[in-house]
Write a protein that binds this DNA or RNA. Structure first.
Lengths: 136, 136
DNA sequence: ATGTTTGTATTGTATATACAACTAAAATGA
DNA sequence: TCATTTTAGTTGTATATACAATACAAACAT
């Protein structure tokens, strides 16, 4: 065999993702937001109101997946949608804004926990890896 | 803010995982196995028949998640379960063995595609990152 | 102007994931 | 030995994910 099964990058990155998500979830505790929802809201916090499609590309999310994530966030009153059916814009509601801001310290605590074991060099290494993969 | 929202490791690793999974899926095409199922079967291919729990730990999978993944694989006749209810052992069936073997070239092609953009240094960097995270 | 192509969103269907609650068996202790 | 604790698996419930099919509107072409 050309590669060893433990080298499987799919398996490894998937496992890493589960592990890191678990850490975020631990910090989020009972907060009524999941780590994915947090990512979407943080993206919107940064970009402001934008076309739905742009968030999908930014987060590398399949359009149908984003669509369904948004249904939940809209139902919770954290995000709203405006414009035409076909090319809607999405943005945080006031409540969404507030929610993100109250979540930031929690998010930072999760980041702190992870960063605690990482050197600058490790982060650089990951960033390199990430940017290479994004070429695919 | 202490960190920039684009630095969010949860979001980044999750996105990376989606991206890499997409590549595997593209190579798998209509093959009647998903990338997760492939990972579980590859692990069993390596370990032989073992306690279910060991696979969960190996792949960092929640026990209930593995339990449900196994239901599908057992129904497909690729894996079987033996021993007591509480501490069963799982292993590839003959059909499962064959399936894994026929999948290896496909898996290698996916690995090749990803490795094509990665230098030895990139892989080392990722490995470092991975091993640090596993300390958490 | 109207018919076609293209880009975007949603729905149908299936898998993956985790936490909490429950069940069952093993291990431990008195 | 028998009661208690610990460990492992499954089920209930909810979110996340993607592909295929469908729906719709904008852009384009003739």
């Amino acid at each position: 065999m050309k590669y060893n099964s433990e080298e499987c990058l799919g398996s490894r990155v998937r496992g890493l993702s589960r592990k890191i998500d678990n850490i975020y979830r631990k910090h989020l505790g009972d907060y009524p937001v999941t780590e994915n929802q947090l990512s979407i809201m943080m993206a919107l916090h940064k970009t402001g109101t934008v076309e739905q499609n742009r968030i999908a590309k930014l987060l590398n999310l399949e359009k149908s997946t984003l669509s369904r994530n948004l249904v939940r966030l809209i139902k919770s009153g954290l995000i709203d949608k405006s414009g035409v059916t076909n090319r809607p814009k999405i943005g945080l509601t006031k409540q969404g804004q507030k929610r993100v801001e109250s979540l930031i310290p929690i998010w930072e605590a999760a980041m702190d926990e992870i960063h605690a074991v990482l050197s600058w060099h490790d982060l650089k290494g990951f960033q390199q890896f990430e940017s290479k993969i994004s070429l695919l």
